[in-house]
Design a protein around this nucleic acid. Structure first.
Lengths: 263, 263
DNA sequence: CGAAAGGTTGACAATGCTCAACAACTGTGG
DNA sequence: CCACAGTTGTTGAGCATTGTCAACCTTTCG
């Protein structure tokens, strides 16, 4: 946690047992990605998996643990761009690039599979081989980025946090865990950075939701007490798939008529 | 502009001359995507290319014109998710899905190439065939979504608009046009929706930038008078690729020490 | 046990939104 | 070609949400 960055990267690549014994095998985004036996990496809480600017040599699949990807801005601010959970791939955003475009850091003790990438071949040679496996993962990534965009553009603080909690809940549910009581692996500051709020606002909104009886928070332990109500809050500014396709709502130019506004 | 949605889609698919005569041929994201001769579509200002929920039958490459992709939210608000310019692909975000996940609407009179997609095969059969061509486009899309995410999460109104203008300028420059004087094809409201602000704020910030002498605005006509100064404003909260990787700045856990904050 | 990190809460300020009036431009029909 | 209506853009005043600064509490971990 206080180790110099290099330490994390040189972590002993002890060979872990392969997918057969992996708890994430079903539903793993890396399933069948490479045939050769994979190496593993272990990270302790706070250790970096890779740094921005490092040469891209591998893609990682999480076996156990949680990882955040993040960047820093010109004026020293930190921006979390993603949280990654067991079965997910880390490093996808850098796949076509020679060097990583973000940091990846373990939020807790974490074990990962290393999926080696032929240096430089990512965008070209690897494409045919990987694409059928990678496509779903890329698609997933794109869809999530897209959801983030609409969330950041037009949600209030409350809506953002409720949405975030429901995303977390869905993630836990997908992995067979309770979706109504779970532990957040990240700090308030990291949550805030991710959803575009300050840590104080995150804390306040959590308190407010708790007062209302919708959730229950103690430290990083969260209970969703009224999921239907939460869903309503979160889905207020969410995309409506088929909003009356026959009305002229779809046509542009007439958009000014509607009371369209942001936030 | 006031036509029923169906009209736009049934626009006469008059066969346009192929890539040889296309002004966008160099740098076109669709270059070499499909061998067969392509059909074309023409849209007039305000006409939809496709509607959310329509079955995905094609990908489109813009020959001339500008297209916006947008969605509507549960409470009736509109969210612009992308502006698309000549040489770019439209419909990528829906490529792996059976139905379009957004609207696409022409912002001005527009001509497009139709790249037919075997229904349902997008995610599977098409993958090997298309991937090598599609990869750059998907990568580009991912990178842009990512930039949007950081912009929406931590930029002020001024920073967002300057960034937007510079993006536009880069786009024009890449197509051989002046990057210091150009015409915005979209309304203030559409710009605002895209960058997460209200149209009033957009207007006000433009005025303020004009007062400062950094830009010059009349209607939709924009001149960038002091691009270096604009760059400084925009890059203030922008990702720094290699921020002193050796200092402890990269390590997490110590992040609390730095005055990291959002917005 | 004590220090450090993380979380909560309060007071205040400011950015950006809402409502509203008005001005400028576009396009259309007489 | 002009006048009008409709649309788009500008500007102002007030307000609300959220950020800032700061103090204090709680948990964790050495």
């Amino acid at each position: 946690m206080q180790l110099p960055p290099t330490k994390g990267r040189s972590a002993p690549p002890d060979a872990l047992p392969c997918c057969d014994s992996c708890p994430q095998a079903p539903g793993c985004h890396a399933a069948g990605l490479v045939q050769q036996p994979r190496r593993g990496v272990r990270l302790r809480k706070g250790q970096p998996l890779y740094l921005i600017g490092d040469p891209v040599t591998a893609l990682y699949a999480i076996r156990v643990g949680t990882v955040k990807t993040h960047v820093t801005t010109g004026d020293g601010r930190t921006q979390v761009v993603g949280f990654h959970f067991p079965g997910e791939l880390v490093g996808l955003d850098s796949l076509t690039r020679p060097r990583y475009v973000s940091y990846a850091t373990a939020l807790e003790d974490t074990k990962l599979c290393v999926i080696a990438i032929d240096p430089g071949s990512a965008a070209t040679a690897a494409a045919p081989a990987l694409s059928s496996q990678l496509f779903p993962a890329l698609d997933y990534q794109a869809r999530r980025a897209w959801a983030m965009q609409t969330m950041l553009a037009l949600m209030t603080a409350e809506e953002r946090l409720v949405t975030f909690l429901l995303w977390m809940a869905d993630g836990f549910a997908a992995r067979g865990f309770s979706s109504s009581a779970f532990i957040l692996r990240m700090s308030r500051e990291e949550i805030g950075s991710y959803v575009g709020l300050t840590l104080e606002t995150v804390s306040r909104q959590f308190s407010r939701l708790a007062e209302t009886g919708l959730i229950r928070v103690r430290h990083r332990c969260v209970e969703l007490l009224d999921k239907p109500a939460l869903r309503i809050i979160a889905e207020r500014p969410t995309i409506s798939a088929h909003t009356a396709p026959d009305t002229d709502a779809g046509t542009e130019g007439a958009a000014a008529g509607s009371a369209a506004s942001n936030r």
